[in-house]
Design a protein around this nucleic acid. Structure first.
Length: 102
DNA sequence: CTAATGACGGACT
DNA sequence: CAGTCCGCCATTA
């Protein structure tokens, strides 16, 4: 599997995240690991940083619910508009976390 | 080829 | 609850 295909897999999954819900980098990595074999949260983060434009990147946050560095303001505004439960600048993962199984 | 580097995560202090 | 420490793994230096 080439890096290019990795990127496509990640972006494809991110596009499936429903509005008002979010996924952590780790969750994306796990869900993708079943198809691609190996993947890590770190790798997903790198991929989003480089090829994240063009997909709802704001629906991907870290496991603690913290928004992506450098885009906090933008992400917060979009999430708020979608009705994602926020506590300060953190996403309430317990309520907003989503997985492809649903 | 080895070393450092992240849009990370979980355990621990 | 905040800060550290270590494992993670493709990419870059």
């Amino acid at each position: 599997m080439t890096p290019e295909e990795y990127v496509e897999e990640v972006l494809a999954l991110v596009e499936r995240i429903p509005p008002g819900r979010v996924m952590s980098y780790g969750a994306v990595a796990d869900a993708l690991a079943e198809r691609s074999g190996r993947c890590s949260a770190r790798l997903v983060g790198t991929i989003m940083a480089r090829h994240g434009g063009g997909v709802p990147w704001h629906r991907v946050v870290n496991s603690a619910g913290r928004l992506p560095p450098g885009h906090e303001r933008e992400a917060r505004a979009r999430l708020l508009a979608e009705g994602v439960p926020l506590r300060g600048d953190l996403v309430e993962m317990r309520a907003a976390a989503w997985s492809p199984g649903q």
